[in-house]
Design a protein around this nucleic acid. Structure first.
Lengths: 183, 183
DNA sequence: TCGCACATGTAACGTGTTACATGATTCA
DNA sequence: TGAATCATGTAACACGTTACATGTGCGA
């Protein structure tokens, strides 16, 4: 009951906030956009949709509009929208930054659902702070490398540092862009 | 038989190339370093070690050196080293860049095992090329956004673009650093 | 009529997560 | 004596991957 959807579940739930879609429609989105990183293919998507429906977070009904074959069109229920809002408004944890940065980006991409610019801004501020903190931690790790460490692991750590720094820079730039936006 | 180790398996196998370690030692590495991103905790590590041993890629023997309790010390077998070398020298695929970039970084971190600077250089060249290609693809996706797209998904895609660009920049910088290295 | 795109699934399998179990040693 | 640390695991569970199954409508 209190079982939360997985990242894929939230991705599907989020997409359905754009309007009713069938499983096939959703698959196409995953197949053609960068969202494809969050998995793909029928074996994951159809079961995930079934789980969301069992949890009453989405509602499926048959699209009897003519055309090809009957399709199941899903849309979020009230409970589904509420679950989505809860997920979107979670605070950004240390753990999220360290190990689930792409889930954070997914959350950000769906923040439009809230129609609350302030919330988007707060997300970016928090993200920049947390990422900065993690960069500091990574730099500390770099300083702890014993001198005989080969160059490759050193450089790999460097890569991590630079990717997170890029993320922090992006967050600050995005914050400015969001503030400029007319709503 | 031809079943390949998972990313976690390769991470363990790679660490064992630094010298014999126990499961506990390995857990500590995962718990305290950035490697922790590649999972953690007994429930994953001990079974992974058991699989590697069943596949004859590592060899465990009891450390009867005094001190605390008996520990199982693992080290790679010849087959294990060969499997590692095969993994490390795989070409970098489009798919790797899109969906397994952190596995690529793990591979890079373990390239020291090959003791072949050229190989490291080639890896970085290939990576930069492939990442550039993916950045191009992401920019194309950005240009395809319909004008009414909310700002958040746009910015999220922007984040992806900038992280990959940071990765490409890093690869070129790292290439220079590796070339400078005396071996 | 052949094949492809549409459309929806299921089954087997391996693996990671979480939580728990067990017992020895060291230190307060 | 009790707590923390060393050290190794196991069991239940859910999820994703891969591969397969099934059938319609449309265009060449």
């Amino acid at each position: 009951m209190t079982a939360h959807p997985t990242t894929l579940g939230y991705a599907l739930l989020g997409l359905l906030h754009q309007g009713p879609r069938s499983g096939y429609d959703l698959r196409k989105v995953f197949a053609t956009t960068a969202l494809g990183n969050y998995s793909s293919s029928p074996g994951a998507i159809y079961p995930a949709l079934a789980r969301l429906e069992r949890a009453k977070l989405i509602d499926g009904r048959v699209d009897q509009a003519r055309s090809l074959r009957p399709r199941m069109l899903y849309q979020p229920t009230k409970a589904g929208s509420a679950a989505m809002r809860r997920w979107l408004t979670q605070p950004i944890s240390h753990e999220d930054v360290e190990r689930r940065i792409d889930e954070l980006m997914l959350r950000f991409a769906f923040l439009w659902i809230l129609e609350d610019r302030r919330r988007t801004e707060r997300f970016l501020v928090e993200l920049a702070e947390q990422v900065d903190a993690y960069v500091t931690e990574l730099k500390r790790q770099r300083s702890l490398h014993p001198p005989e460490t080969p160059i490759q692991p050193r450089l790999a750590l460097e890569a991590g540092i630079e990717q997170y720094q890029a993320c922090a820079r992006w967050a600050r730039k995005a914050l400015i862009a969001v503030r400029k936006e007319r709503t």
